[in-house]
Structures are given as C-alpha cells and as structure tokens.
C-alpha cells in the first residue's frame, strides 16, 4: 500500500462524506407547517448538517478570518402574506395580532461567499410561544420552467422566556456556499410557535445577522 494509494483513498472518503453532507431530504409535514409552506405542491427540502458545529473563535472584528457581516433589521422583514400584522419601533417588530406569523427577509451576498453563522437577535417573554428562525435557499433551474425548490439549510428557536436573546445557526462545519446564479437566500421567522396566534409585544424580532467569508 503506497502513499499515493492512501492519499487517493483519503480523498475518496472525504468526497464521499462531502456528497453525503449535501444529501437533502423532503421536509416532513410538521417541518413544512412550522416554516409556513402550506401549499402541498411546493417543493421543500431539508438539509441536515452532517458534522458537529465547529468551535470557531468569533469576534466583532472577524477574529482575523476576513469575515464580513450582513444584517437585516426586523423592520426589513416582510410578511408572508398581507395579513401579517406588525408594529414596533425600528429596528424591532412584533407580530401584533392574528394568525399570520411568518415574515421573511432576503439577503444579498456575493457569489461564492461561505455563510458560516446566522444570528437572530430577539426578545421573548412569552410563556406560551417561541420564535423559530430558518435559513433557506430557493433555487430554480437556470433556463427551464422547473418549479423553485426551497431548502431549509438550518433552523433553531428561542426557548423559554429569556427576554433579550440571541439564537445562532452554526454552519461553520459545512458553510453554505452562495450560488447567485440559481438560488436566492433568505431568513424566515415564525413569531408564534407552536400555538400559531401572535402574542404582540411578548416577542420581538430585532435583527438577523449573517457572518460570511467573501
């Protein structure tokens, strides 16, 4: 067994792992409902992170990694439908009434950027509801009439009644590489889960920040 063979085997193993890393699966009905995909005809996939999260050092100056940030304030999030009732002082919004609780903001990252972290800054003082956050891509064939495929790349939730809090989606072990040619990238929040009825000022979305390597 020579060195070259061992190197090839190692490379094949790594490639195999990488391929597995990106194997998406169809979203379950529960996952679709949590994210606000009500149309059963809509293609929704889930990407499960295959590796444990890295323990990168994070710092406001990028910790020497050359990382950059892009932020969407709560006010920049648009309701899934026109029935989304919201209010608050910028940059924060609360879902003020009704059952339409989904809001989304699109991010505009450079081609080839590696998305490593998504941080949601929020306020949660509701004992009945949590706020869910999803990173998703919406991709479509480049020239044909294929339907768009939405993929949940990562998700998490607030927990309990922490008041001001941060929820982090840690993608650092397998960063999402931005493909501007076929995909759009966005963050969606569900501001009343699991009950489904908005709780007003008990839950606020302040902002969502992406940390990426250009």
């Amino acid at each position: 067994m020579n060195t070259r063979w061992m190197a090839r085997s190692a490379l094949a193993f790594v490639c195999c792992m990488a391929a597995n890393a990106w194997a998406d699966r169809p979203a379950t009905q529960t996952e679709r409902q949590a994210m606000g995909f009500d149309d059963p005809a809509q293609l929704v996939m889930v990407r499960d992170l295959p590796f444990p999260a890295d323990s990168d050092t994070r710092a406001p100056d990028g910790a020497g990694l050359g990382d950059e940030w892009q932020t969407r304030i709560g006010t920049a999030f648009q309701g899934r439908t026109g029935a989304f009732n919201f209010g608050g002082q910028a940059p924060s919004i609360a879902c003020t009434s009704g059952t339409e609780r989904f809001a989304t903001a699109t991010f505009d990252l450079p081609a080839g950027a590696a998305i490593k972290y998504v941080d949601m800054f929020a306020y949660d003082n509701s004992s009945s509801e949590e706020m869910l956050v999803f990173l998703l891509s919406v991709c479509q064939g480049t020239g044909g009439a294929d339907p768009p495929v939405s993929t949940i790349l990562a998700n998490s939730t607030t927990s309990g009644t922490p008041g001001d809090t941060v929820v982090t989606l840690n993608l650092s072990s397998a960063p999402v590489i931005v493909d501007r040619y076929t995909c759009r990238y966005m963050v969606r929040v569900n501001m009343a889960s699991p009950g489904g009825t908005c709780v007003g000022g008990s839950i606020f979305l302040d902002k969502v920040r992406m940390q990426y390597t250009p």
């Binding site: 994070r58 710092a59 406001p60 304030i73 002082q89 910028a90 940059p91 924060s92 941080d119 800054f121 306020y123 922490p162 008041g163 001001d164 809090t165 941060v166 982090t168 302040d206 902002k207």
Partner: peptide, 16 residues
C-alpha cells in the same frame, strides 16, 4: 439617520 447597536453575541435590547 439612526444607528442601532446590540451586543455582539449576547442578548441585549437595541440601543438607538
């Protein structure tokens, strides 16, 4: 023209 800041990685209300 507003600047709104929060802690880097911990909970804290936005300071306008």
């Amino acid at each position: 023209l507003v600047k709104s800041c929060q802690p880097f990685l911990s909970g804290g209300g936005p300071v306008r």
